[in-house]
């Protein structure tokens, strides 16, 4: 007797449209949707996940491209990082294209998708800070129709994905202004971000929006620093800032994202020492990194 057959008994469906996919998921609520599979299949292979069934999203052509809708781009969740990294897409949403190009080795970028990056919601997901800075929305298709949720609500768990729902589209604003995505990694080759910063200018709303990735479970928005620096920019003029302002902005962002542990009852460096105290060296370095990235990002966006 072999136990071989029993274990391959899980079902795989390959719907050709979004409606079919939603129906397939409704028919088998324990099935897991899979697009590029770069995170999911690694978990399956290492035995961490044993899905009862899979709904493959690779054949749904409607979510593999993008379209325009009233000043926004409607990005299919099945867009691969490789596709987003190309120049035509970069002209549309430059920061997202930069994040897609930085998202790993070519094999991963060819398979991994925008929707997968959001669904995995890894702290180091490169697209996430960009979507947070863009204040993009996700469109979720479910058995009761579709609904639109800000990406930050999804990532923070304020409004999570409901059973039977599929991540279908991302609605991102077209800002027609400079955008920057910067990522610090431990090596020169592709690697996970130790910290990343996405910064976009929104001239219509006279805003600067910035999100810091990889330092917390979800991207962080330093709202006060954004408002402060937006108020200093001459939006109708040259849109330049003194380098010292950029430096101050960087430090403002870094302090907001990695605050001093003043309320910490235990000293993180020396548990027997006084409460609060200095940051551990690695965290202090992370704060310096965020400050440098934010300063460089603002400088590049305004240059």
């Amino acid at each position: 007797m072999s136990t071989y057959a029993r274990q391959t008994g899980s079902t795989v469906t390959l719907p050709a449209s979004l409606d079919e996919a939603v129906a397939a998921l409704a028919a088998m609520p324990t099935a897991v949707p899979v697009a590029g599979g770069t995170d999911l299949m690694a978990a399956v292979n290492s035995g961490l996940l044993r899905p009862a069934g899979l709904v493959g999203l690779g054949r749904i052509s409607e979510i593999r491209g993008w379209q325009y809708a009233d000043g926004h781009a409607l990005l299919g969740a099945g867009l691969t990082h490789a596709r987003m990294g190309r120049p035509d897409f970069a002209a549309l949403i430059p920061a997202l294209a930069a994040a897609a190009r930085a998202a790993g080795p070519p094999q991963i970028r060819n398979a991994g998708t925008l929707g997968g990056n959001i669904a995995s919601a890894a702290p180091t997901g490169d697209a996430l800070p960009v979507l947070a800075a863009l204040e993009a929305n996700v469109i979720l298709a479910g058995p009761d129709g579709s609904r639109e949720v800000p990406v930050s609500h999804l990532l923070t768990g304020m409004d999570p994905l409901r059973p039977g729902e599929l991540l279908a589209f991302v609605r991102a604003p077209l800002l027609h202004a400079p955008q920057v995505f910067l990522k610090a990694t431990a090596r020169t080759g592709p690697g996970r971000a130790t910290a990343s910063v996405a910064l976009v200018l929104d001239p219509a709303r006279r805003g600067v929006r910035c999100a810091v990735g990889a330092v917390a479970p979800m991207p962080l928005r330093p709202l006060e620093a954004e408002r402060w620096v937006a108020g200093l920019i001459d939006w109708d003029g040259a849109r330049t800032l003194d380098p010292q302002v950029c430096t101050a902005f960087g430090e403002y962002v870094a302090m907001a994202c990695i605050p001093d542990p003043v309320d910490d009852p235990v000293n993180p460096v020396d548990p027997t020492g006084p409460a609060g105290g200095a940051l551990p060296p690695a965290v202090a370095h992370l704060r310096r990194t965020v400050a440098a990235l934010a300063r460089r990002a603002l400088g590049r966006a305004l240059s």
């Binding site: 930069a98 190009r101 930085a102 910067l182 990522k183 610090a184 990694t185 090596r187 020169t188 080759g189 592709p190 690697g191 910063v197 440098a292 990235l293 460089r296």
Partner: peptide
């Protein structure tokens, strides 16, 4: 090729 790689934050 700056430290940090092709799409890195190197300046």
């Amino acid at each position: 090729l700056l430290p940090g790689g092709l799409e890195g934050a190197g300046e």
